[in-house]
């Protein structure tokens, strides 16, 4: 059973412009715990990939902000969430059936609770 987390970059990630509160370590942890992770941002996809490579995180997707539907089509997951800092992030996420967390909510790594839920299911 998989969970998918999509991260916006500018205003969300610590390396964004402006910097957000979500750290590279949080993403790395999510990846290591088995989440499907990637970015969905207004930055060029090729740049997104480069940045994740530079941090040594083998992300599963790196797409333009409006490509969440493609991400959903590509990956089977129990839950999908997008994290961003703008109303447009929220709208694009919710239109395609993603859960949405604001950047400031995400700094608590609420997705970790899903693992507990998964344990309960087992």
């Amino acid at each position: 059973m998989a969970f998918l987390i999509s991260f916006d970059i500018d205003g969300t990630m610590e390396f964004g412009d402006p910097p957000g509160g979500v750290t590279v370590e949080m993403v790395r942890r999510a990846k290591e715990l088995g989440f499907i992770v990637g970015s969905c941002s207004d930055r060029f996809p090729s740049w997104q990939k480069q940045v994740w490579d530079s941090h040594g995180i083998p992300v599963d997707f790196w797409v333009a902000k409006h490509m969440l539907p493609d991400v959903k089509a590509r990956f089977q997951a129990e839950r999908y969430v997008h994290i961003g800092d703008r109303d447009i992030d929220r709208q694009l996420a919710e239109q395609v059936g993603f859960h949405f967390w604001w950047d400031y909510e995400a700094v608590a790594e609420p997705w970790l609770a899903w693992l507990a839920w998964l344990d309960d299911q087992r």
Binding site: F44, P45, K65
Partner: peptide, 24 residues
């Protein structure tokens, strides 16, 4: 100085609309 990455034709043609026909 800050974002030296080059845009491609594909980046442009697949970009997010702001007010179609104007994209980001």
């Amino acid at each position: 100085q800050h974002r030296p990455e080059m845009i491609t034709v594909e980046d442009y043609l697949t970009a997010r609309w702001i007010a179609k026909p104007a994209n980001i």
